[in-house]
Simulated scan of single mutants.
Amino acid sequence: LAFNQFLCSICLDVFTDPVSTPCGHNFCMNCIKTCWGDSQQCNCPLCKEKFTKRPELKVNTTLREVVEHFKKKSVLDKHEVLCDVCTGEKLIALKSCLDCGLTFCKIHLEPHTIAKHKKHNLINPVEHLEDYICQKHEKPLELFCRDDQMCVCQFCTEGDHKNHNTVPIEEECGQTKVRHFHTKLKVKILKVP
């Protein structure tokens, strides 16, 4: 199974109490309940299939067990990301900067506390930072194109995705924390054509 099959498409995190909708898509129990709110008429956030009656959701115990096994394995396989700037012995990175295209340890992150770099997009440290940056424009992927179902940068909306329905990534994933989305983005990313 691919890593992204363990991710809820609403929170973009590994499933917690996964449930299946009648159309066959899986979501975290809390995510889908929050998404539907108090509405009696609901639709699948992924395929948009409408359900005339609110589906009764039950935890998919098989998927939950597979996800738990995956979580345990990924903790064992996890290793720390190192600073790109350190010379000699590299220190453990604290943040990756989408604007600089580098990952920084505590010492090298200092310039990002001053005005010039304060507005840079910092995310939790990642190994493949290029997956978070538009390959065409070399800018952070901050928007989601609903027409093409892909992440795009601001410059993409002036070209290939002009007049498309684009929204901030955090709006698409139903959260206000874009930082959380970016930490999970590399498994969801679609490259710009």
Results as ranks from 00 to 15, higher is better:
residue 11 C to P: 02
residue 101 G to Q: 05
residue 18 P to S: 06
residue 9 S to Y: 07
residue 105 C to V: 14
residue 27 F to K: 07
residue 42 C to W: 08
residue 13 D to T: 06
residue 104 F to V: 15
residue 57 L to S: 07
residue 108 H to P: 04
residue 41 Q to V: 14
residue 121 N to Q: 05
residue 93 A to Q: 11
residue 83 C to T: 06
residue 112 H to C: 03
residue 47 C to D: 08
residue 67 V to L: 02
residue 20 S to I: 05
residue 45 P to I: 00
residue 84 D to N: 15
residue 36 W to R: 06
residue 122 L to Y: 04
residue 35 C to H: 14
residue 75 V to N: 12
residue 60 N to L: 08
residue 33 K to A: 04
residue 93 A to I: 11
residue 67 V to R: 00
residue 119 K to Y: 08
residue 10 I to F: 01
residue 74 S to T: 15
residue 122 L to G: 08
residue 4 N to T: 13
residue 66 V to K: 08
residue 96 S to L: 01
residue 32 I to V: 14
residue 39 S to E: 13
residue 9 S to D: 10
residue 89 E to G: 05
residue 67 V to G: 05
residue 81 V to K: 02
residue 80 E to Q: 14
residue 91 L to M: 07
residue 77 D to R: 13
residue 62 T to W: 07
residue 19 V to A: 00
residue 47 C to A: 02
residue 130 E to D: 08
residue 95 K to H: 08
residue 28 C to T: 04
residue 66 V to R: 07
residue 47 C to E: 01
residue 35 C to F: 15
residue 39 S to G: 06
residue 66 V to N: 10
residue 55 P to C: 01
residue 20 S to T: 14
residue 72 K to G: 14
residue 7 L to K: 13
residue 77 D to I: 10
residue 63 L to W: 05
residue 10 I to S: 02
residue 42 C to R: 10
residue 31 C to M: 05
residue 107 I to W: 00
residue 19 V to F: 04
residue 128 H to I: 08
residue 124 N to C: 06
residue 104 F to Q: 11
residue 130 E to M: 05
residue 66 V to S: 12
residue 131 D to T: 08
residue 127 E to N: 13
residue 16 T to N: 12
residue 111 P to T: 01
residue 34 T to A: 14
residue 105 C to Y: 07
residue 61 T to E: 12
residue 57 L to G: 07
residue 69 H to V: 11
residue 12 L to S: 03
residue 23 C to F: 04
residue 68 E to L: 12
residue 35 C to R: 12
residue 67 V to W: 01
residue 67 V to P: 00
residue 103 T to Y: 00
residue 7 L to A: 11
residue 116 K to M: 04
residue 112 H to E: 03
residue 118 K to S: 06
residue 41 Q to S: 10
residue 44 C to W: 09
residue 90 K to F: 08
residue 23 C to E: 03
residue 38 D to L: 11
residue 47 C to W: 00
residue 53 K to R: 15
residue 124 N to W: 08
residue 74 S to C: 12
residue 88 G to F: 05
residue 120 H to E: 09
residue 17 D to I: 09
residue 132 Y to S: 09
residue 68 E to H: 07
residue 28 C to E: 05
residue 92 I to N: 13
residue 86 C to E: 10
residue 114 I to R: 15
residue 36 W to E: 07
residue 13 D to P: 03
residue 89 E to F: 05
residue 56 E to G: 09
residue 13 D to F: 03
residue 11 C to D: 02
residue 131 D to G: 03
residue 85 V to Q: 13
residue 62 T to D: 09
residue 45 P to C: 01
residue 118 K to Y: 04
residue 102 L to C: 09
residue 61 T to I: 12
residue 123 I to T: 13
residue 125 P to M: 10
residue 61 T to K: 14
residue 66 V to F: 10
